[in-house]
Design a protein around this nucleic acid. Structure first.
Lengths: 338, 338
DNA sequence: TTGTATGCGTTATCAT
DNA sequence: ATGATAACGCATACAA
C-alpha cells in the first residue's frame, strides 16, 4: 500500500507537506505541490479513508436502514427505487452507503450502536417500524437522520404526499360515477392514517357516505390479507362498485379473490391500487394507481442529510413533501348512470 | 464517545488490559475481565470499527458491485434478491456491506481504487460488464473477489445453472408437442453463450432442427428490443409455435407485440421466459419460466468470500453452480398433433 | 497477570 | 514555505 510516507520519501519533503499539497492547502509552494501530486499519481497513491476518518472524525459514509418488518425490504420495488436514488445522490456528494442492521455477527447491537460502530456521519431511515424502540433511539440520537414517510420531532423527513394521492384517486373514481367505494387499508401507521383521513374527507366533500363495513383492515404488501378483506366485501348484501387497495402488490390478493368469484375487472368491479410500481403497469388491464415519487424522495433524503452533516450550524429540520402522479390505468369502469 | 481509555480510568487498569479483556484474551484475570466488561457496558462503550480497522488491517467490510450497464441495477428483482441474500449472510458472519461504484463525489476512481479507498476486505461482483477494464482490474487484483455468473481465472464464482435451465425448458415445450421453437437471446455474454449452446444442443438431441431465422438477438431486460425481435418472428412465412425470451421482463415487450397482432397466449403462440422473478407468476396467464436460485447464489457468494478473507492459506478458487427450478406456468400450449 | 511502548495513515498545530 | 510532533482509538509485542 502506498502511503503519504512513500510520497514524502520520493519527493524529499515531510509527510505534513505531502498531506497539505494533496489537500490543496494554501501554504505550500506551487512547485512542491505539483511535484507531490505527480509522484502521488506515479506511485498509485490512494488516500486511506479509514485513517482519515479516524483523524478528522468524519467517515464520509452514510448508513441506510431498511428493516423488513412491514414487507418494506429491499426487494420491494418502491424501496429498491429509493435505495437506488439515495445511493446515486450520496455518491454524487462524495459519500458511500452502508447498510445498518441489528446484530452484526456475534455482536448484538441495535441500530444506533451499529451506526456509531461504523462511524456513520448520518443515517437515512428508509423503511422501518417507527414504534420500534431501537428506531426511536437512533432517530432521537445525536446522529443526523432523515426519515422517509414518518416525522420525528425536530428531525428532517421526506414525505410522500399521501393526502393528495388519495384525493386524486377518489376524485378520479367519482368522476367515473362511483359512489359506493370501499377502502382496504394497511397497518395503523401515520401513512395509513393520512390516507384514511384523506379518503374520508374527500368522500365527505363530494357528498359520498361510506358505511363502516366498507373500511377494511389488512396489511401492506401482503396479498393474502387483502384477499381476505376482498372476500368480506364481496359477501356484503350491498357490494361496493369500487375497491381501494393498500398498495399495488396487495391488489394481487384481491385479484385472485375476484377471479375465484368470476368477477371481471373492471366490468363487474373497479379497483384502485397505490404506489405505481412498474409491475402495476404491466398487469392487464393496467392498474389504476398513484405513483409515489420514490426517485425524488431518495434524492432529497440524501441531499438534506448531507446538508445537515456538512453545515450543522445552518441546519434546520424540515419536512419535504414529494408529490406523485395518478396513473389512470384501465381498472375503473365508467358507470353508466349516477 | 466512550473509548477504552475511559474504561481504563474507571477501572484503574491500563488500556492494554482493557483491550485484552474486551477481546477475551486468555492472559487476564477473571476478576478484571468481568469488571472491565461491566464498566464497559455501564459507560455505554462501543468499539470503534474505524480505529480497529486501521490497526489490524481488516475492515470487516465487504463491497458489493452493481454496475448498471446491462439493466442489472438494484431494482431488478433478480439482483435485489441477490443483494438481500448477500447482505443477510455477510451480516450473519459479522461483515458490513458497502456499495462500490465509480466516481465518488469529486474524486474520480475506478472500482479497484474505490474498494482500496474503503479498505474493503473483499468484493462481491454481482452485476457488471465483465469486459469493462475497470471490472477486470478489480477481479484480477489482490483483493478477494467473488463474481456472479462469470468466471475469472483462479477466482471464485457462483454460476446459475444456465445449461440445465435451458435443457429443462426445451424438454418442457418439446413434451407439449412443440417443434418450431424460436429463441430470442440477450447480448453476447458468457451467460448468453451457455444458454444458446444448451438450447441448440438440447434441440439437436431431440432431433429438432432450428432454422437460423428462429434465433434472434435482443438485449436483456429491455422489453423494446424483444418486442422488435418478436415482430420479425411474426413476419416469417413459417412462424414458430413457441418463443423463448431472454428473460421475464423482456417477455413483456413480446406481449405488447403479440397483443398488437391480436395473437393470444398460449392459444395462438406459446412463450417462455427466464429468471422466475415474482412478477412472472403474477401475470395472467402465469409465465412458463425458469427460476434462478438467486437467494442461494447470494448466500454462497458471501460465504465463500468470507472464507477466502479469513483463511487465505486454506483457500482455493471454486466455481459453484446453483440450480434453479422450472415454473410450469400456463403460457405453453399443448399441441394436439405431433 | 498487568503495564509500557509503539504504530496503523492521516491531519492539525505550532515552530522554524 | 516547510517540518517536527502529536493525536485520533485500538491492538499487540514485549517487559515487568
Amino acid at each position: 500500500m502506498v502511503t503519504i510516507t512513500d510520497i514524502s520519501k520520493a519527493c524529499g519533503v515531510s509527510r505534513a507537506t505531502v498531506s497539505k499539497a494533496l489537500n490543496g492547502a494554501p501554504d505550500v509552494s506551487q512547485d512542491t505541490a505539483k511535484r507531490v501530486r505527480e509522484t502521488a499519481k506515479k506511485l498509485g497513491y490512494l488516500p486511506n479513508a479509514t485513517a482519515r476518518a479516524l483523524k478528522v472524525g468524519r467517515s464520509y459514509n452514510i448508513g441506510i436502514l431498511f428493516s423488513d418488518t412491514t414487507g418494506g425490504g429491499i426487494s420491494h420495488e418502491y424501496f429498491s427505487q429509493i435505495l437506488e436514488s439515495v445511493k446515486a445522490e450520496a455518491e454524487r456528494l462524495g459519500y458511500d452507503i452502508t447498510f445498518i442492521s441489528k446484530d452484526l455477527g456475534a455482536m448484538s447491537m441495535d441500530y444506533y450502536e451499529h451506526a456509531k460502530y461504523r462511524s456513520c456521519d448520518g443515517v437515512v431511515i428508509a423503511s422501518a417500524d417507527f414504534t420500534d424502540p431501537a428506531i426511536i433511539r437512533l432517530a432521537t440520537s445525536e446522529i443526523p437522520t432523515v426519515t422517509l414517510d414518518y416525522t420525528f420531532d425536530s428531525r428532517t423527513s421526506i414525505l410522500s404526499d399521501n393526502v393528495k394521492g388519495m384525493e386524486e384517486l377518489v376524485h378520479f373514481v367519482y368522476e367515473k360515477g362511483h359512489r359506493k367505494i370501499a377502502f382496504i387499508h394497511g397497518e395503523n401507521t401515520s401513512v395509513t392514517q393520512k390516507r384514511l383521513v384523506s379518503f374520508r374527507k374527500t368522500c365527505a366533500a363530494l357528498g359520498i357516505e361510506i358505511p363502516p363495513e366498507y373500511i377494511c383492515p389488512a396489511r401492506y404488501h401482503d396479498p393474502k390479507s387483502s384477499g381476505l378483506a376482498t372476500r368480506e366485501l364481496l359477501a356484503l348484501s350491498d357490494r361496493p362498485t369500487c375497491i381501494f387497495y393498500p398498495d399495488d402488490l396487495s391488489f394481487l390478493g384481491g385479484l385472485s379473490e375476484l377471479d375465484r368469484h368470476d368477477i371481471s375487472i373492471p366490468e363487474e368491479m373497479s379497483v384502485v391500487g397505490y404506489d405505481g410500481i412498474p409491475l402495476s403497469q404491466v398487469l392487464r388491464p393496467k392498474l389504476t394507481t398513484y405513483r409515489q415519487g420514490a426517485e425524488r424522495m431518495g434524492r432529497e433524503a440524501a441531499r438534506l442529510l448531507v446538508e445537515e452533516i456538512e453545515s450543522p450550524d445552518l441546519w434546520l429540520p424540515q419536512q419535504i413533501t414529494v408529490e406523485g402522479e395518478l396513473l389512470p390505468g384501465k381498472t375503473v369502469r365508467d358507470l353508466p348512470d349516477n
